[in-house]
Design a protein around this nucleic acid. Structure first.
Lengths: 164, 164
DNA sequence: GATTTTATGTCAACTACTTTACATATCATG
DNA sequence: CATGATATGTAAAGTAGTTGACATAAAATC
């Protein structure tokens, strides 16, 4: 993109600053409005993210805590708390991995699957409300950019010694 | 974007789901790596966001708490805590608004300005590390999309009764 | 078999975010 | 002047995020 003006000057810095701030704003609003939208299902956006991971084809037979933390990009200690809350409500279970007895595989229970099914209509309406005016093409573009950012952040995290 | 395939089907739902999840991931990593990057300045990404708002031309003479909360898209009660921490360190001050004695205007102190200046080099390097491979054009596109998302979320928040 | 690494859990302290509710002071209005 | 709306603060409970440190159990390695 050599046609860009002022690549090393204040425009770039300004854009970077705006981008980081916009990300911060969007994340705050996503958590706020998302949790509120699913209020009657008694689920937060974080728990929603966990459930959404567990229903994936790839993880229906369970996922290790470490891998789940890596996927969600949160600390293992934090995730333990979220999982404990979901477990105490009977939505998920910790099953000892047959291949490695140290590892517990996290998976949805029958109750968890039912709860997930129950909230699908509201999740769909939330998506429609919050992203309905974005075309598939728009979203593909956005995903592309966010993927780059995520990867950059992940690389920094790794260099900084994530999960020491 | 009429050329989009399957606008009402599972592709759209899948993209929406991925987008929300990607946003969640990026925000987690931004907070983690950003706070860690500025570790020696003893500042979190949230405090960084506050300082970044206060140095804007428009707000150098102070901004009301309510407006700052709206800008950051967090609750007033949460912001009060962040501001108190910054105030106790002498980085910001709460000045009574001459035009409205109910209102306190939040502004940077001389110390706050100095601290902000001190961390600029590290902020710049963080931006370079995390967004250096995005062209200005990329960032403008991204900002455009994030703006739409932010506005959608804001509208939902308002409809849900934000700041009751 | 002893040692080291790995996976998880737990404890603790802290910041940040939410909500509901109430207190206080001030502004604006009837 | 009384009343209501507004701006902020405070309190309290809960969830979510971070870090560091330690315990336990099992796997892997020497």
């Amino acid at each position: 993109m050599k046609q860009d003006i002022d690549q090393s000057g204040s425009l770039t810095a300004d854009l970077q600053n705006r981008l980081a701030f916009r990300l911060y704003q969007c994340a705050n609003q996503l958590n706020k409005t998302g949790t509120r939208w699913l209020d009657r299902h008694d689920v937060t956006t974080q728990q929603w993210a966990v459930l959404g991971a567990l229903v994936r084809e790839r993880w229906v037979n369970g996922i290790a805590v470490r891998d789940l933390a890596k996927l969600l990009m949160v600390s293992r200690q934090n995730l333990t708390g979220v999982l404990s809350r979901l477990e105490s409500r009977g939505w998920i279970e910790r099953v000892v991995d047959a291949n490695d007895n140290r590892s517990r595989l996290i998976k949805l229970t029958a109750v968890g699957w039912q709860r997930w099914a129950d909230m699908q209509a509201d999740i769909a309406s939330f998506y429609k409300e919050s992203m309905g005016n974005l075309s598939n093409n728009d979203m593909i573009h956005m995903l592309h950019y966010l993927d780059i950012l995520r990867e950059n952040f992940r690389a920094i995290d790794e260099a900084q010694g994530g999960e020491e």
